[in-house]
């Protein structure tokens, strides 16, 4: 999900000048973009050595941390925006981390692969787990330990008493507001406490 259009779409949810925490920031591309294009500041959290190095090479602040250990380093509401871009599906404590996201940030932006996207449904109807550009892994070696849908996150947000400010899908870099659960490979939510 690193294509420029998708990144820009998500970046538009971040008010200019925001203090941003990017959970699972990967190579730091999003933070570097936010810094450059929207004058944001902040930190990335990353567990992978190669990604930590990539962030350092980009000049992005990065804290090497296992998100499954929680966000105790960060006090309540110390960030304007906390990003969780393609991170949720890797976390054992996805529900806890969703609450942590809106504890630490005034707004949480969550994006993850929507398993209910129609090609995935077709694949499952045929009796096979989907292997697509968005979900490129075989079922037996996928790093995605959570599979959920755009509709599922709405229910989890409700259950966790989170306010949903906006939700939509992204497909091929375009915002999908009509039937995103069916039509979008990526699900996006902005949430708060």
């Amino acid at each position: 999900m690193s294509d420029a259009a998708t990144m820009e779409t998500i970046a538009r949810l971040v008010p200019p000048g925001s203090r941003v925490l990017d959970l699972g920031c990967g190579d730091g591309a999003m933070l570097a973009y936010l810094k450059e294009a929207r004058r944001c500041s902040g930190y990335g959290i990353e567990i992978d050595d190669a990604n930590v190095l990539a962030c350092a090479q980009r000049g992005v602040n990065v804290i090497q941390l296992n998100l499954d250990e929680g966000l105790s380093l960060f006090d309540d509401a110390t960030f304007d925006v906390v990003l969780q871009i393609d991170t949720l599906q890797h976390l054992r404590n996805a529900e806890v981390m969703l609450r942590e996201t809106v504890r630490v940030g005034r707004i949480g932006v969550v994006a993850f692969p929507n398993f209910a996207h129609w090609p995935n449904r077709l694949s499952v109807l045929r009796g096979r787990m989907p292997v697509t550009r968005r979900l490129p892994y075989q079922w037996y070696d996928t790093p995605n330990i959570r599979v959920g849908t755009h509709a599922d996150l709405a229910l989890l947000a409700q259950r966790s008493n989170l306010r949903v400010h906006d939700s939509f899908g992204i497909q091929d870099g375009k915002t999908i507001r009509f039937a995103p659960n069916l039509r979008a490979g990526t699900s996006v939510y902005t949430l708060s406490r």
């Binding site: 930190y43 050595d49 930590v52 350092a56 602040n61 990065v62 804290i63 090497q64 941390l65």
Partner: peptide
């Protein structure tokens, strides 16, 4: 709110 990077090798 200082600029900081941290690596745990």
């Amino acid at each position: 709110r200082r600029d900081v990077s941290y690596a745990e090798i």
